[in-house]
């Protein structure tokens, strides 16, 4: 056991656990997008950043292990401002047709944005528009909505051990690809919806669910 100062109070932590694990245990909620408890950490979305005393930059809590004597701030103004900016960046690159997206009510990106009080982004940037891949019998893929969290890639690899997805291109043009950047249409995808379950947004949807209504409580911006 090691002692850590978390948001001003001393707490006990186990060696090897990440800052995020510790926060979850202590009931502190930290927004995450690319992180999923069943997958290895990626460190791509940077939403879970926290302030660690002495560190040059903020650190991502999902992959940073706790260390003795750490002093952590999970909701300092600096942290909140950075998270808001990241959400704004994600939203600015995301299509704005939430009302007609059938994951709208279960969309993790919207949930995080609502929690942080981010509405419409103040700036626009190039969006990545791709044709909808709906010619395969199992999964409908709409990469325009993809937030590049890489959870589908990891889920397919680590949970299903199938390795259907890879990452292609680079920078702003990065894209989750199948083979030579072909529409998703693989036999292994028959009766497997692992990636769909892991997709935080509306990029991956099961064919039969495409038009089914998914109801949940509405998100209200807390501001």
């Amino acid at each position: 056991m090691i002692t850590i100062k978390l948001n001003g109070s001393n707490v006990e932590a186990r060696r090897g656990m990440t800052i995020l694990d510790l926060c979850k245990e202590k009931g502190i909620s930290i927004p995450t997008l690319c992180y999923h408890p069943q997958l290895t950490p990626t460190g791509a979305c940077r939403l879970c950043v926290v302030e660690v005393e002495g560190a040059r930059t903020l650190v991502a809590s999902c992959h940073t292990p706790v260390a003795p004597g750490m002093t952590i701030q999970t909701h300092s103004p600096k942290v909140i401002q950075t998270r808001k900016m990241i959400v704004e960046l994600l939203l600015s690159a995301h299509p704005d047709f939430c009302p007609v997206c059938n994951k709208a009510n279960v969309c993790e990106l919207r949930m995080i944005a609502a929690d942080l009080g981010v509405g419409l982004p103040r700036f626009r940037t190039k969006k990545r528009y791709y044709p909808i891949e709906d010619d395969n019998p199992y999964i409908i893929r709409d990469l325009s909505k993809c937030v590049l969290c890489f959870r589908c890639v990891k889920a397919c690899r680590e949970v299903k051990m199938a390795n259907v997805y890879s990452v292609g291109y680079r920078g702003h043009s990065s894209k989750i690809i199948v083979d030579n950047d072909q529409p998703l249409n693989k036999e292994v995808c028959r009766q497997c919806d692992v990636c769909v379950l892991f997709c935080p947004v509306g990029a991956l949807v099961l064919r039969e669910e495409r038009f089914r209504k998914i109801s949940r409580k509405p998100f209200i911006i807390k501001g």
Partner: peptide, 22 residues
């Protein structure tokens, strides 16, 4: 930087793009 960003993390991938637009 927008050309050379690897595209993995959000701040760099989207941020460099937004910056170059501005």
């Amino acid at each position: 930087f927008a050309e050379e960003s690897c595209g993995k993390c959000v701040p760099c991938r989207e941020g460099t793009q937004v910056m170059s637009d501005i």
